[in-house]
Design a protein around this nucleic acid. Structure first.
Lengths: 352, 352
DNA sequence: GTTTAATATGCTCCAAACGAGCATAAAAGG
DNA sequence: CCTTTTATGCTCGTTTGGAGCATATTAAAC
């Protein structure tokens, strides 16, 4: 079949010195999976679009919309992604950006017998919840289902103190007496920085680091599934968040991470908002993503002062109180400032 | 040949609903190229390691070290990259991070007849110039050879006003009278924001955006090579920077972009420094990367105050003046602050 | 030896950004 | 009328960081 592909894959190394030559056996071609973490905010709840595989033998496992990249059908990677998402969920993507390309062997194992792609490229897409009404397949789920420890909206989540802290610290202890080559940063220190133990501050931008640490410690189901040795040691505690197919939870962690970081220096919140909105609605959306540490008056001053929004002239009534002014995103800000965003920083009181 | 690869590539779609199925014809497997932008600072000059293809038919074209990813040989993408770099240049990589995965059709055309990979993953590696002594193949070249407009160390480069500005503006004009669907941001505005024309400020972090704009306008050789139509229109002006193989210049632009951004919030400068260094040497290195807008006293205060360095107790003589204290990177800062870096911001006077 | 150049180092001043709090007005909606 | 919620203005006080002044210390040039 795909002759031109195979032909293309064949190198002609005589031209390049020390040419990147293929190993003696065959082609280096691999299958590439395109994966979309599609994020919206629905009733002040940050949600991702997941496709649940009900026919799965092990039970229902959520996954992200995905599909293989096929260069003969897709002119670009992002184009391929949009096609897959449209086919699988009926959703037409708006804003999308590439996150990361994962290629670790053994981090893709499927609970069923479906062969996973070897390399997966993760994308982040932001959309309005209203656009999601057209979703024909899949459902919106809070991302905190998969990352309960990231949800600080009602204070520090109990799961951190009750489950994560003791188990991670036990894991750190178990690695102590090794007197071979020490890692650059000790496990105990990584744990402390990631989860804000022992007086360290909680950094909401370390989403991926935290997930990777839990994976490494064998505390998330995917680690067990992928056959990490240490997984069994820690007995049968409650599972830490819902697992996902393949490496999709890792991709979602990357997506949350990127969203939290980018919202501060690029006006990406507005991808999640309807055209007209109240300043308080905007604040609630930002808080849904970052955690609720915003001072109302200062938020107004910041957002209006930065020229991010402009009043539409309309009012929104039925707010339960005084009607609120409606605003819209002020596009021209992109032509004025190099890095406009909702520049909120964590308050000094956010230390656990 | 690669039976197990082909077998793997075959999906078993019966399990997943709306399964990501392959198109009827053949496999979706593609060849993946791993590309390294290896950066160092040599005599206050930011350099990248390039491999020159002297046997090329069109003439000598520089390229980055690269090679295909082969999952049978490489357990991880980064592992594969390190192998290729070692094989091609003899250099053992230290710090490395993934940049981006490019997969646009038609942006890889080779000047010779060597088939380029369809998808290329770019990496950024930072190393000390001293480590480069072991380089057996390839050479260090200023990255400003490829991006002369990025070199603001002696003020605003002439090439911007003499060549880039008039040609870009002509390109913007040429697209004016179209009254179809307008792009979200007009060409003229993109140009203004990217290059700081008409009173806009120069943002040193827009390296990739600038290169992409020049490519789109057909002003860099790669655009002509890839068969972009508009390329010929603009006559035979001097070329804007040296071209590179495949999409390597785009990858290098991404690398410079990332380096400039990351140096401000992560202590990555120290990957470029020897173990012991003078504060002034550190400043010169930062300036080589960002451009020279640093106040000496404030730089000292910033760096020392942030706890990024500690004195070794030694002095460096033969500085041309009073001997300078030697410092070393203070690793513990990673355990104290969530985002330590050389937090320099452009002075308000940097508007062109 | 003296001068000069280059660096090292400490200190002050000032403006902008921003976190935090207080107070009050305005407009529903029961 | 009372509650709720938003809108709005103002004040502190702290931190950050840009900019400049002054002086000490040494190597190298003369």
């Amino acid at each position: 079949m795909n002759m031109e592909l195979s032909g293309r894959a064949k190198p002609t190394p005589e031209k390049a010195q020390r040419a990147p030559s293929k190993d003696s056996m065959g082609h280096a071609a691999v299958e590439i999976g395109l994966n979309a973490a599609i994020v919206a905010v629905l009733d002040n709840e940050p949600v991702a679009l997941v496709v649940r595989d009900t026919a799965d033998s092990v039970g229902a496992t959520d996954g992200l919309p995905f599909g293989p990249f096929s260069p003969r059908d897709h002119r670009t990677l992002e184009g391929g992604l949009r096609t897959w998402v449209r086919d699988q969920t009926g959703l037409e993507l708006g804003y999308a950006e590439q996150l990361y390309t994962f290629g670790d062997r053994g981090r893709h194992v499927d609970p069923g017998d479906m062969a996973p792609p070897i390399v997966s490229i993760g994308y982040l897409a932001l959309t309005q919840a209203g656009d999601g009404r057209g979703v024909s397949n899949g459902s919106w789920r809070t991302w905190y289902h998969y990352f309960p420890w990231e949800d600080w909206r009602r204070g520090r989540p109990d799961i951190i103190g009750n489950d994560i802290e003791p188990r991670l610290k036990a894991w750190a202890e178990s690695a102590k007496p090794t007197n071979g080559p020490q890692p650059l940063i000790a496990r105990a220190d990584r744990i402390r920085m990631c989860f804000g133990f022992d007086g360290a501050t909680w950094d909401e931008e370390k989403v991926l680091e935290r997930y990777e640490l839990l994976y490494e410690a064998g505390l998330v189901d995917e680690a067990l599934r992928d056959g990490r040795s240490s997984a069994k040691v820690w007995g049968d505690h409650p599972r830490l968040g819902l697992p996902m197919k393949f490496d999709h939870r890792r991709i979602l962690a990357t997506a949350i991470n990127r969203t939290r970081a980018k919202i501060k220096y690029r006006p990406v919140v507005f991808e999640l908002m309807p055209d007209d909105f109240t300043l308080y609605e905007l604040q609630k959306t930002v808080e849904a993503i970052l955690g609720p540490h915003l001072h109302k008056q200062n938020f107004r001053r910041l957002v209006e002062g930065a020229g991010l929004v402009e009043p539409t002239g309309e009012m929104k009534t039925r707010t339960g109180g005084r009607p609120a002014k409606l605003f819209r995103f002020r596009r021209e800000v992109l032509l004025e400032r190099p890095a406009p965003g909702v520049r909120v920083s964590a308050p000094p009181s956010s230390r656990n």
